[in-house]
Amino acid sequence: MQAMATRTSDLENTKTPDEDKVKMSCDMSATSGGCPFAPEDVVNIIAELFAVDRDTKIHNYFICSKNMCNTVTQCCKSVLGSKKFHHDRFITAKYWWLVFKEDQSAENCGMYCFICKKHQMANPQNKSEKFCSKPSIRFKYDALNTHATVGVHAAAMENELLQHMSPFHQENVQRKAVRNSVYNKAFSTAYFIMSNYIANRVFVPLIEFAETVLHVPDLRYFDHKSVASCREILILLGKTLKQKITDSVRCRDSFGLMTDEVTDISVSQQLVTFIQYFDKSKGCMQTKFLSSQDILVEYNSANANAIYSLLKKEIESNDLSVKSCKGLSTDGASGWQ
């Protein structure tokens, strides 16, 4: 899988210009308090999120700067009671994301983060919805500074920034997010083909069928569809399954072999071998494919000595004992004598 690993590594290390913009914008927001969005975009988002009527009033840095607002209404002060919201301290460029909502109901009157509210970001640890769907009434600097640095706020910021980025960057982010899931689905498909003795040439058509007909759109990100890549996938799965089989056989006292010489389409003589053993966990005999060895690589013909040497080599290479081989099944041809 070296080719696949190389391509995957290249993908992980590839950065788009938009990705750099996201990082720079997040860094700017986290360090200097600067807003990475246009003021009119902020005003439009707030207008969509907060319904304004005669009983409510919205305060935000960009809104109040335009309307020259510098305090909350007397009615709001009455609703808050002993708590005091200092407009001049909190409605500033540093807290551009802060929205203070005046409301006749004390339950809805307080501070919100319009970015977190838009993306419905609640604290994953304590499930707190403060600054999101519920207002915060802790009018302290540390409350605002803490919210500005928590992970959910950063995640909401990134989500919002991604909506302003190019489709190419969004595609690249989505590709990285589902990479492991895509590989898992592809390898599971290959395993299904192998375990059901289906021709491996249907691997790519089956992937495409799952993507289009079974509506698994993430499979469009699976790029390893070349003949060489498919072969590597199947070989890797084959080695893994073979290791699992030999590990199981190694725990048994005995096993048997079934083998025969087959000449394939390339006129190569292949020694195809199956292994049989008793599986105690399943309470029955198991017959599994073990190997396919090219006889003519080391020997001139498929004679008895060549077959014996290859079988012995295969047994020993899998850390199995030759003495544990209690049975051998062949077709009884003269080459086996």
Rank of each mutant, 00 (worst) to 15 (best):
G238W: 05
F274T: 07
V267F: 13
D253T: 12
I265M: 13
L290E: 04
K239D: 08
K244C: 09
K244M: 11
T263Y: 09
L234R: 09
S248Q: 15
G256F: 07
K280D: 15
Y277V: 00
C251H: 14
I233H: 01
D253G: 14
L236G: 09
L257A: 03
V267R: 15
K282R: 13
L234M: 11
F255D: 00
M285N: 09
T273P: 00
I235G: 00
L237H: 02
V267W: 03
V262D: 09
D260I: 06
Y277F: 07
I265F: 10
D264W: 02
E261G: 14
T287S: 09
S291W: 07
T240I: 09
I245R: 07
T287M: 04
L290S: 03
Q276P: 00
V262T: 15
D279C: 11
F274C: 08
G238Q: 06
K239C: 04
Q269P: 01
E261Y: 07
T287E: 10
S254D: 05
K288W: 07
G238V: 06
S266N: 06
T240N: 14
F274M: 10
G283K: 12
M258N: 05
I265A: 15
V267M: 13
Q270L: 11
G283H: 06
S281F: 12
T259Y: 10
I235C: 03
K288A: 14
S291E: 08
I265G: 09
L237I: 02
Q270F: 05
G238S: 08
D279Q: 10
V267K: 15
T240S: 14
Y277A: 02
C284R: 13
M258A: 03
S266R: 04
T273H: 12
G256Y: 03
I275W: 03
C284P: 01
S254H: 07
L290W: 10
T246D: 10
L241E: 15
S291G: 09
